[in-house]
Design a protein around this nucleic acid. Sequence first.
RNA 1: GUCCUUGUAGCUCAGUUGGAUAGAGCAACAGCCUUCUAAGCUGUGGGUCAGGCGUUCGAAUCGCCUCAAGGACACCA
Length: 539
Amino acid sequence: MNNEELLLNKIKAALIKLNIEVEDNFIIIEAAKDKIHGDYASNIAMKLASKQKTNPRALAQQIIDSIDKEGLEKIEIAGPGFINFFMSNETLSNVIDLVLNTKDSFGTNEKINKTVNVEYVSANPTGDLHLGHARGAAIGDSITRILKKAGYNVIREYYVNDAGAQILHLGESLKARYFELYKKKYDLPEDGYQGEDIIEIAKQFKSKYGDKYLEESDENIEIFKDFGMEKELDKLKNDLDEFRVHFDVFSFETTIRKGSALDDLALKMKDYIYEEGGATYLATSKFVDDKDRVIIKSNGEATYFWPDIAYHLNKLSRNADLLIDVLGADHHGYINRMKSALMMNGYSKDSLEVELIQMVRIVKDGEEVKMSKRLGNAIKLRDLVQEVGIDAVRYFFVSRDAATHLDFDLELALSQSSSNPVFYAQYAYARMNNVLSLSTIPLNNKYNLLIDETEFSLMKSLSEYGKIIQDAANERAPYKICNYIQKLSGYVHEFYAKCRILDVNNVDLTGARLSLIKACSIVIKNALELIGVSAPEKM
RNA sequence: GUCCUUGUAGCUCAGUUGGAUAGAGCAACAGCCUUCUAAGCUGUGGGUCAGGCGUUCGAAUCGCCUCAAGGACACCA
């Protein structure tokens, strides 16, 4: 039990004694900003005063009178009616043993019987991942790690749109490059891909098939499509793997559309489908969309929306209680459209949640760098990782709320300067690790010797970890983990600068301090893992 | 025009779901290494929380209006 929970239970018990009933989440315990106000504070008396027809300070006094004071140094009423709690040193230090005993599972919440399917990246396998994908990958992956830590069952999923025009262009582009290798001409489509990678794949195609597919006719295009996609997808998987982003399931549009799947779906949803001007519409405006959407164009082709509905239903049918899509911010209009379609099938509006990732603007020399995937001159994830390292890229991309625009300053990212906050945290970890490895003094639990202000800051900060994970999970907000890491690392550096840890003349204090920094190193490493950043033993 | 996101120190951003004197980092300035890693620490300066009105014991946070920036509003993906 952490300090907040301890106090919450105490307040709850006191309120019951006073015959006041409240919901658990009505009671708020917050860490005091100023030491004068103790360690923790609650505004419960002020929140309840008007309901109880009394004044806040009087109610606060009543609560204090009936509260169990074990583990507390003292309790005070302050200001308009705050109750300030001063914890005993022993209570504060409990967290050290808790961390040392539970190790990596510290901060893990009890299993929640809920399965969340998180879909992210889902870039078409027609080229390399660029920075926009990278932010989605970093955030999506971190969200899955945090949700798992918070106790959810998580399915990490990638959707491949392998049935559309883009893959056809890929096949044609590959075919053109393949023909080139035999000095033959095959017209590259206008929207074809020009990247170098296609030439490379063409060579692989040649070494596998030789000159077997040199006919001009379109009949063999499937061979090129499949081959190209497989190679491109392998590349994406490799890049993502290196970026520490992994998936449990890859779903393919062609599989979703197999056989009569879409026709069956149309039959099932027929009450909401109508034709107008040659096109087929879905009446999404009957639910939460502002207008109806085309699902089959007048030329007979399905829009992307239509198989996407089948896909989302497929995900839900696979034992998922909640779907989270991590998408680019340009998909804003997509949200209510898809929610409406799911509602038509009896799911609630909240069965789908979309995390929009705002654009990454790339700035160089004070000017925005535009990129184009087709022209092959985009800044690739792979290149960036090579320049600045995986840790910096991953940290940088999740360090802010997904909904805010991110200016990625190339010079800043490419220069390995100390302004990168990831070093601050890793350095804190490496320092502690270094001390632990140098010491021959055994760890002990004489925590009553830990009385420095910086030591209490560390203990309180450790105690907060579980709540931070809960918050980050509930709000799908990895940046909250970053903020926590910065705060805890800061306390570590302060402590390190102020308190000498190793002292052969004071084995008791040294042992207690070693226990404390061991606990800190466990939590920092753990928190860094949640955002996919490594914790180096040495720097 | 409608909708979404954003607006906090010179810059980049936090702000614990409405709490006490609004905080970090970078940048500037002044200090701290014969002792565990100075990629660090300590201190100083820096604010009309875009603006206005409202809600209440209490607002950066909630509501309405105005202003500004970016994005979305396809038989594109």
